[in-house]
Design a protein around this nucleic acid. Structure first.
Lengths: 247, 247
DNA sequence: GGGCCGTTTCGTTGGTCCAAAAAGGCGTAA
DNA sequence: TTACGCCTTTTTGGACCAACGAAACGGCCC
């Protein structure tokens, strides 16, 4: 193990831009790509990293916390830190941090993203969509007439949209969708009751499916856009209430 | 202070499923929902949390690191920790971690998404684009002839595409681009050298600008599509190398 | 009102103590 | 001699503490 030791040089190359912890994170990052580490490999021990980077152990530990939170390393006592790739579930975990109301920014971000994915992709969708897809969408949508709880209805709503996106055959985007699922579900539920799903959501979805079947691009875009923007009404209302309360 | 000594005990009271840090995270979580904190509100100071939870400051700090990594709190010296909701950008930040080489599939998916945004919106782009826009694009592209590092070149590449998208005047689209920036930057750098940017990327961009100036929709779509798909050559080459190495 | 100064609070460091797990040593039995 | 199990030592992460520094905020004095 002659080359086990880290060179001083790598310490100087990366200037301490931000905090010491962030610095260590990027240095570990550099270390990983430098040595060609992959999933399953072990990182040096905390104490080795301290020595290598010339920093304290607490700093290294905080950096390690970040990597752990990102789902990039798994650290067990005695064994040390091994590289994993749990980013998907970590991302899921962090989006399920649903303790507060969705911020307006997040709401706008998510809905903007969905708009891009579902409205702007109209050409691809119309190119790729098939009869079996619209049939499946119809069937999912019919579930609103049977299902009961709001949670189940939101699940159905989510399922409808993921089913639609699946025709794009773009796994990365589908992944993004499922990562954001907790937040999207929450968005779907904001300001809605069981009855809203049964009436408004159902008919909006139906109009979308019919536009798809009729191969009416303009109608599709219009229907989908208004459907996605429906939630803004609730948000604006809430904002108005907040302003009134302030006076 | 009767319960000051409870530190050991309180660990037992709370199921203490995992580590002390995870415990603190869930207790902070509970605190947030308990007190109805929302975005913008401030959490107690680190020392207050230490006392409240009967734990050490380092433990609280590590818990805070997790929340920071999740994009849920922002902590500034003196001010303390305030609740935010930056989860979207945190998520993309964590996916920019290049544990392994980006896979061909992911590349295809992301570029497919960009294709969707930049190629499919051709009609709107041609409707809205103005002389000042193409001039700006030209100027950005000329930067490739001056700039030096690969990172800077990738930044320029990113800037070129965001500038192009900005003519659509669609904030959501720009937001998505800036959120996905880490991932896109990484994609831009795969398989490219400083020289590649200076030659291939530069001339591809130039062709795009010229198509825009000449108001040639078909040429624009073709140039943009091939530009976005140029990276595939790298994967094909890598695949060939891998096959040769196997023999 | 503006500059100076103390206080608060986070940022970082070096260290201690502990528990669990791995590693290694050792003796005994097959 | 080899294999097995037991014991001790070492390694390593987990939690904690005390302390210093830096930056921001608020108050004070001129």
């Amino acid at each position: 193990m002659t080359e086990r030791k880290l060179t001083k040089k790598s310490v100087e190359i990366f200037p301490a831009t931000g905090s010491a912890v962030d610095d260590i994170v990027s240095r570990i990052r550099a270390l990983i790509s430098e040595r060609g580490y992959g999933v399953g490999d072990s990182l040096p021990t905390e104490r080795e990293l301290c020595e290598a980077f010339g920093t304290s152990r607490n700093t290294v530990r905080e950096a390690m916390r970040i990597l752990k939170a990102y789902g990039i390393v798994e650290v067990r006592t005695k064994v040390g830190a091994t590289l994993i790739d749990n980013r998907m579930s970590s991302a899921f975990e962090m989006f399920s941090f649903n303790l507060m109301d969705i911020s307006r920014d997040t709401f706008a971000d998510i809905q903007g993203f969905r708009c891009l994915l579902e409205v702007s992709s109209v050409e691809q969708i119309f190119d790729l969509i098939h009869r079996t897809d619209t049939d499946a969408l119809r069937e999912i949508n019919d579930g609103f007439l049977k299902k009961c709880s709001v949670d189940e209805a939101a699940e159905l709503d989510f399922k409808f949209h993921t089913r639609l996106i699946s025709v794009l055959d773009n796994k990365a985007m589908l992944d993004v969708y499922s990562i954001m699922k907790p937040v999207i579900l929450r968005i779907m539920k904001t300001g809605k009751s069981r009855h809203t799903f049964e009436t408004a959501t159902y008919s909006e979805h139906l109009a979308i499916v019919e536009a798809l079947e009729g191969r009416d691009r303009v109608a599709y875009q219009y229907r989908m856009k208004t459907h996605l923007e429906a939630g803004f009404a609730y948000f604006n209302q809430k904002k108005r209430e907040a302003e009134q309360a302030k006076e």
